[in-house]
Design a protein around this nucleic acid. Structure first.
Length: 670
DNA sequence: CTGGGGACGGGGCCC
DNA sequence: TGGGCCCCGTCCCCA
């Protein structure tokens, strides 16, 4: 499998050129070792075992191993080196094509898909995607096959980029991002790049070979993306969107201003790729100190809301393991892409493999309650891109559903491409959506409640109910409709709906374990910078929030609030009282500004305090100044009123509630 | 066992 | 689009 040339390159890659080669060759005493190793890796991928990276391709998620991807392509390496989630431009790589590519990476075989059907992937698409992903070996293989098929000449003028002519073109395409890293190796750019050698690649991981010259030829490769800078303040600025994307996420983990400056430079979808780790989450799985997370168990799978069905394949895909002779015709390079289709049947052994969340997700994101009725692609209308679409994906076995990877939740029709699915979704009228006979598509039991209690809403979300408001009874349908209209941003993993896209994106991070913000002190990671800011107070010992009743200090404002509720005997029981305060405390709000409190917050505290003061004047006074204002509002403690008429000085240090701790500013990207 | 504090996650909302 | 802040809620620890 690994031939001499590969080992030379590997030796060079790992810094042991020349003399070490013999050692490596000698070490390969079992000729099938490499092959078996790859088979094992692929098997692990199909099971999701030890998969440490998720590749998002449009609406599809694939799981894989960073090492494999990194060894296959410098471009992929740059993406996965610090991110556990990478997002590929779906205009460059379709899910179907990427599935083929991923199979190739793990097997060295190129499954060209169903060429006859016209459904992707086809060689041209694979070629373009391979070029984009800088899988040079695959590029060469595709070219060879295309040439053999007499099709390559159609692509050749564009050097294989014909289907994606936007690449490298100066203007316009909305998703015209991430020109392949190849570009940097050829100053003329991708489109000017001379055709690659027709020499076929020897090994699916032979980017090891390509890495050396690429490092030499582009300053981009001078960036060591594999090394975290101990000093987050100095980060290179990249003009290359793809690399800047990759770097961006590294930077976000370091919170450097430079990284913030990268905002907007990369594909917005790629910004989703902020994965820093998949620490175990959820109650009872606190990942203190990071690294507690487990990987989910799905591998190389795409996700959609479908019910897992009994699979026609055995759970293990070992059928491939034997003894096909490769390199039957390609000489030194060793063309691994046999013409025979080679598919890897991924199989869920149990429902757990349908979870994305992995550990800490009891029940996972089940797909129960819905039948799989994969239909055929037929509708071809416009696109619903850019607007909410009831399209969701759940773990599934690509091979189990043929090429119709995209399933419309309402009608369960499958489509070979997201475009077709989006087009199909367009055909669903609102009347259809809410007039659907109840129960036909299953019951709804998850409303994705607003706020709080993540467990209650994230566990076992019924696919159909969470993803689309279909199949509902009249009354319930209206209710769901209101949800749908007021929460137009559904999570593509669990289907929970959100009022704002940003909230949904943030929610997605939690699904994927995206924790870009790392504590330099303990390594703990957070999904939000604000959380890190809070957390840093643990290390700094800063407790800027002080209870004016008992003098207790708190590092987190919310804990002070909670504490104040204790003082006030349980909080505000009368919501109207709270509102009355909120509506009438503008002067207080002004004063609250001095305290760093927002108007609403001040009113809430005031309301809480006031309830207490009605029974305990001492506490009222102790909440000074808020309580005094409250007292004024309530007409009590009149003897304090004079004090309020005096100019407001700066608040006591303990009341600078919103003052962000300067000591930890360095942790803030802003 | 209970209450309080510490710490953290998720969602809403505004900027 | 993301950051910042707030709120709700939870878990864990400890007295």
């Amino acid at each position: 499998m690994i031939i001499k040339g590969d080992l030379e390159r590997m030796a060079e890659e790992f810094g042991h050129p020349g003399g070490t080669l013999k050692t490596m060759l000698d070490a390969m005493e079992v000729p099938s070792h490499a092959r078996h190793l790859l088979l094992q890796l692929n098997s692990q991928r199909t099971k999701g075992f030890l998969c440490d990276v998720i590749i998002v391709v449009q609406n599809a998620l694939f799981r894989a191993h960073k090492n494999i991807l990194a060894a296959s392509s410098l471009y992929l390496k740059s993406l996965v080196v610090h991110d556990n989630l990478i997002n590929l431009d779906h205009e460059m790589v379709s899910p179907g094509v990427f599935r083929v590519i991923l199979d190739y990476i793990y097997t060295g075989r190129l499954n060209e898909g169903d060429q006859g059907s016209g459904a992707e992937p086809n060689l041209g698409a694979v070629l373009a995607a391979a070029s984009y992903l800088q899988l040079l070996d695959l590029v060469a293989l595709c070219r060879k096959k295309l040439k053999r098929n007499g099709k390559y000449h159609h692509l050749r003028p564009m050097h294989g980029f014909a289907p994606y002519a936007k690449i490298g073109v100066g203007g316009g395409g909305r998703y015209r991002v991430s020109a392949p890293v190849i570009q940097s190796c050829f100053p003329g750019g991708v489109l000017n790049r001379p055709p690659q050698s027709e020499e076929l690649p020897p090994h699916p991981l032979s980017s090891l070979r390509s890495s050396a010259p690429e490092r030499d030829c582009s300053p981009l490769y001078g960036l060591d993306l594999t090394k975290k800078s101990p000093d987050s303040q100095s980060q290179p600025t990249l003009s290359h969107p793809a690399l800047s994307h990759a770097l961006l996420h590294h930077d976000e983990g370091r919170h450097s201003p430079a990284s913030r400056n990268q905002r907007g430079a990369s594909d917005p979808k790629q910004r989703l790729g902020l994965l820093r780790g998949r620490g175990g989450r959820g109650r009872g799985l606190r990942n203190r100190g990071e690294g507690a997370g487990e990987q989910g168990s799905e591998g190389g799978k795409v996700y959609r809301w479908v019910k897992p069905e009994p699979l026609p394949y055995p759970p293990e895909d070992e059928e491939e393991d034997d003894e096909e002779e490769e390199d039957e015709e390609e000489g030194a390079g060793g063309d691994r892409g046999k013409e025979t289709n080679h598919r890897h049947h991924n199989h869920h052994k149990n429902g757990e493999e349908h979870k994305l969340g992995g550990a800490g997700r009891p029940g996972g994101y089940g797909c129960e309650g819905e039948d799989e009725k994969s239909g055929s692609a037929s509708e071809e209308t416009g696109s619903s891109e850019g607007r909410p679409s009831p399209i969701f994906h759940m773990p599934y076995e690509p091979e189990s559903f043929g090429d119709n990877l995209y399933v419309c939740i309402p009608c369960d029709k499958g489509f070979p491409s997201s475009e077709q699915l989006n087009a199909h979704v367009e055909t669903h009228t609102e009347e259809e959506l809410y007039g659907h006979p109840a129960g036909e598509l299953g019951s709804s039991n998850g409303h994705g409640g607003a706020g709080g209690g993540s467990n209650a809403t994230n566990v076992n979300p019924p696919a159909n109910s969470l993803s689309a408001p279909l199949g509902l009874g009249a009354g319930r349908g209206l209710h769901e409709k209101s949800h749908w209209l007021t929460r137009p941003y559904p999570c593509s993993i669990c289907g929970k709906k959100f009022t704002q896209r940003g909230t949904m994106t943030r929610h997605m991070r939690s699904h994927l374990g995206l924790k870009p913000f790392a504590c330099d002190a303990c390594g703990m990671r957070f999904t939000r910078q604000y959380r890190l800011t809070e957390h840093m107070r643990i290390h700094s010992g800063e407790k800027p929030y002080e209870c004016q009743v008992c003098g207790g200090k708190f590092a987190q404002q919310r804990n002070l609030i909670s504490h104040m509720k204790m003082h006030s005997g349980g909080g505000v029981a009368d919501g109207k009282l709270k509102m009355d305060f909120a509506d009438s405390i503008y002067p207080l709000g002004k004063y609250a500004e001095h305290l760093g409190l927002k108007h609403e917050k001040a009113s809430a505290l005031l309301a809480q305090a006031s309830q207490h003061l009605l029974a305990d004047a001492k506490a009222m006074e102790s909440l000074y100044p808020l309580s005094k204002l409250a007292a004024e509002h309530l007409g009590i403690i009149h003897d304090k009123m004079d004090a309020l008429r005096q100019p407001l000085g700066p608040p006591p240090p303990s009341q600078q509630l919103s003052s962000e701790p300067r000591a930890i500013d360095r942790y803030s990207p802003s």
